[in-house]
């Protein structure tokens, strides 16, 4: 196990180095100039040139790359060209909304998605199964922004039960924090609920047809015990894989939800940075996000051993 983790860590470092080179070159080779974006639409070339020089954008690419890597290894992810603040400060400011939305969505998706999947498998071919199949198809195919606007219309504009948009920091109180996250969480979560429900159903159906399930039934095990203790545990590996993938997708997929519900999270920070060619932010966030992906994959792989004792590394 120790050797496996070490191997994975080494490969993670290689991945991160490749990501770093790719991100750096991609940004520098793409058209666009942060100096021109700072100077604004009506600026003259002379003003833009002055800013470019000041920002060090005229330095040769290898020099810029070496400076970036050197600073990053020292824990300095750079300073935003526009905001003039350290990238890590900006990121930490935006992390809470994104993590809150991601974690709540994951909790909702896993609990409801797995429950729906188990229920569908148990009632396979019946009315509930078909109803949940329709729900899954809709949840998976309707875009987040459409669901978002519909929820907004009914639960915010028509009834005033929930706020239309915005985010409240958790330090301002759990209730306002939670209330502001209900609609975005539901909007973002529906697709993932549908996805997890479908995978759970398929995995459960496979397990439910196994001989040991028939044995458990013959021994008089209750439906609950059969589904939860015997079937779900054995169907867990593909479900866990899907949850891991979903979590990674969620981190990338919150951008649209943050935009629709006006949540100042990491997604919007990156989109603004891309529009403005704020290189340090884009580089910093992409490297950190890649690291997070690698970490999630490793965690999921290790979690397999807890669910299925037959798996050993």
């Amino acid at each position: 196990m120790g050797a496996y983790i070490l191997r994975r860590m080494v490969s993670a470092i290689v991945v991160m180095v490749l990501v770093g080179i790719f991100v750096f070159l991609l940004l520098r080779l793409a058209p666009g100039d942060p100096a021109a974006m700072i100077a604004g639409r009506s600026a003259t070339e002379e003003m833009i040139a002055g800013i470019r020089e000041q920002l060090g954008l005229n330095d040769p690419l290898p020099v810029q790359f070496i400076h970036w890597v050197r600073d990053m290894l020292g824990g300095d992810f750079g300073t935003s060209i526009f905001a003039g603040r350290p990238v890590l400060d900006l990121l930490s400011q935006r992390l809470e909304p994104t993590l809150s939305l991601t974690i709540l969505t994951m909790l909702l998706s896993v609990t409801v998605g797995v429950s729906f999947g188990v229920l569908s498998a148990w009632q396979a071919g019946g009315f509930v199964d078909r109803l949940l199949a329709v729900f899954s198809a809709l949840g998976y195919s309707v875009p987040v922004f459409v669901i978002g606007y519909l929820l907004m219309y009914f639960f915010a504009i028509r009834t005033h039960w929930l706020p239309v948009q915005g985010y409240k920091l958790i330090e301002s109180g759990v209730a306002p924090w939670f209330v502001h996250l209900i609609l975005p969480t539901v909007a973002l979560g529906l697709g993932f609920i549908a996805f997890i429900a479908r995978v759970t159903r398929a995995s459960m159906l496979e397990v439910l047809s196994e001989d040991y399930m028939r044995t458990a039934a013959a021994k008089g095990a209750s439906s609950y015990a059969m589904l939860v203790h015997h079937a779900l545990k054995n169907a867990g590996v593909p479900i866990l894989t899907v949850i891991g993938i979903s979590f990674a997708y969620l981190i990338g997929g919150v951008v649209l939800t943050e935009t629709v519900f006006n949540i100042p999270g990491v997604g919007r920070l990156v989109v603004d940075a891309i529009n403005n060619r704020d290189y340090p932010i884009i580089q910093g966030v992409l490297v950190l996000t890649s690291g997070l992906y690698v970490l999630i994959n490793l965690t999921v792989d290790l979690a397999y051993t807890l669910i299925d004792p037959r798996i050993r590394y």
Partner: peptide, 9 residues
């Protein structure tokens, strides 16, 4: 392109 691409070109 995006506006940043326009101002560069």
């Amino acid at each position: 392109s995006d506006w940043a691409g326009v101002v560069a070109r």
